[in-house]
């Protein structure tokens, strides 16, 4: 089955990105496809390559990048929400791309299920 995921909260501040990641990993493990993860609202902060968590903590941003690389997951950051919050091409982590809100609507149309994680 084709899954789409929406993340509305930033990393570390809220559990949303963690829950979404573990959901995505479990879906992939079951042989499903995670077609797109769309980052909206403060969720765009998950795409900052300037993030530096302490050594003993999980690296939320790097984890998404790795998932994108290994499973060809399309990580899309909403351009309008990103610009508001200072996320641009120059500080975008690997595997993420910036695009429009249409990508979220497209995920809703193309995916069998769309699951939202937020506050």
């Amino acid at each position: 089955m084709k899954f789409g995921i929406v993340i509305n909260e930033g990393p570390y501040q809220h559990q949303a990105s963690d829950s979404a990641y573990l959901f995505a990993k479990a879906a992939l493990a079951k042989g499903h496809e995670v077609w797109r993860v769309f980052f909206y609202h403060d969720g765009v902060n998950n795409a900052s390559r300037l993030t530096e968590p302490p050594q003993d903590d999980r690296n939320i941003v790097a984890r998404w990048s790795k998932l994108a690389e290994e499973h060809k997951v399309d990580l899309v950051v909403c351009v309008a929400a990103a610009l508001r919050r200072g996320i641009k091409e120059e500080n975008l982590a690997q595997g993420f791309r910036i695009s429009g809100l249409g990508q979220l609507v497209e995920a809703g149309i193309k995916c069998d299920r769309l699951v939202t994680f937020g506050d």
Binding site: N8, K25, A26, A27, A29, H32, R113, T116, G118
Partner: peptide, 19 residues
């Protein structure tokens, strides 16, 4: 577990997160 979460999403035609 998270696998069960995935199964629930799959089994239902749609899902809503009550944010």
């Amino acid at each position: 577990d998270f696998g069960g979460f995935v199964d629930l999403v799959e089994a239902n035609k749609s899902c809503q997160s009550w944010l």
